[in-house]
């Protein structure tokens, strides 16, 4: 307790403007908080969706079931990660403000930037764990269906075609594109989380944050169409009045192009996606995350608490 105790001497040293340690402490705490709030029970719902879907599909009989299992699992994964991202991120700031926990944190030598970054990193970690869990489960289900599909090919297809068809199934299931696509699902979830964090940095309630964030994400899905409509109205075949054009420009500029992160829809039809595209999408995603955190900080830095 005395002024010359060792710990006091330790902080007498120069204060670092940015400390990874402090951000990591907040990230770790955020993750622990989320884990103890039992967010991973969400994964059980995911597992049930996959099992339920498998049972329904197994009761029907037609070709292409393996593909459908893949589509629906990836779709469920997309939705679950995005929802998890938005809901978990939207709660953080308003809850800390309301409970005045934020006072105690910011009354420590913690900058608001470290606080925001730590929060985002905590949610990102949680999303990573969630994505990995879902992927493991998905792979088990997919492996089961792959076996089933191959068995059904052997039983039904003309012998001339069996080897070709089996090879096609084997080559088309666990592909690098599939795992790349899952990586992009995770990336998109983190982008959604950063976007939500930015909204919550000026919003006053979590409900407002959730609604605005989800709206921005939905609008993000029509960005490519809005863009082509004002950039290339002749090809689009319509006459765009100036005010509509202005509106479309605003959408294109301020909303993220979420369709670029929809690579899973291409995996669904077995399109091979070049690794260069994955690289570019990842770079773009990281750009979004950086900008959103920066803007969140600008909105939050002077906010009255």
């Amino acid at each position: 307790m005395t002024a010359n105790s060792p710990s006091a001497a330790a902080h007498a040293s120069a204060h670092k403007l940015f400390s990874l340690g402090r951000a990591a402490a907040i990230a770790g705490n955020t993750l622990r908080d989320l884990v103890r709030q039992k967010v991973f029970y969400f994964m059980l719902v995911f597992a049930l969706v996959l099992i339920g879907m498998s049972l329904v599909l197994a009761a029907l009989s037609f070709q292409g079931q393996l593909q459908m299992v893949m589509n629906m699992s990836l779709g469920a994964m997309s939705v679950f990660t995005m929802l998890l991202a938005v809901l978990a991120s939207a709660m953080m700031l308003p809850k800390d403000i309301e409970d005045r926990t934020l006072y105690t944190i910011l009354a420590k030598p913690v900058s608001r930037f470290e606080y925001l970054l730590g929060k985002l990193a905590g949610v990102a970690l949680m999303l990573l764990i969630a994505t990995l869990l879902m992927t493991v489960f998905f792979c088990i289900v997919l492996w089961f269906w792959q076996g089933r599909e191959i068995a059904s090919i052997r039983g039904s297809v003309q012998s001339e075609l069996v080897d070709a068809e089996v090879a096609k199934v084997m080559a088309g299931t666990f592909t690098p594109t599939l795992f790349g696509g899952i990586g992009v699902i995770f990336l998109r979830a983190v982008v959604c989380s950063a976007l939500t964090l930015m909204v919550s940095s000026f919003a006053t309630s979590w409900l407002f944050t959730v609604i605005i964030s989800l709206m921005l994400i939905l609008i993000g899905h029509i960005v490519p169409i809005a863009r082509s409509a004002w950039m290339d109205p002749i090809q689009a075949g319509v006459d765009v009045p100036w005010y509509l054009s202005l509106f479309l420009r605003l959408i294109t500029v301020f909303a993220p192009d979420m369709q670029l992160f929809n690579i899973v829809d291409d995996i669904a039809v077995g399109t091979h996606v070049a690794s260069g595209i994955f690289g570019q999408v990842t770079a773009l995603g990281c750009g979004y995350i950086t900008i959103y955190v920066l803007v969140a900080y600008l909105f939050f830095a002077w906010r009255e608490l």
Binding site: H11, G21, A25, N29, R32, D33, D99, Y103, A107
Partner: peptide, 27 residues
Amino acid sequence: FLPENPYFYKFLTGEETVHFYGKLCGI
């Protein structure tokens, strides 16, 4: 600083709470 009617992260134990704030101070 001790604010009026403080609330801390409900899911942390007392020990973890003090740990957390200690880490924020670089301990």
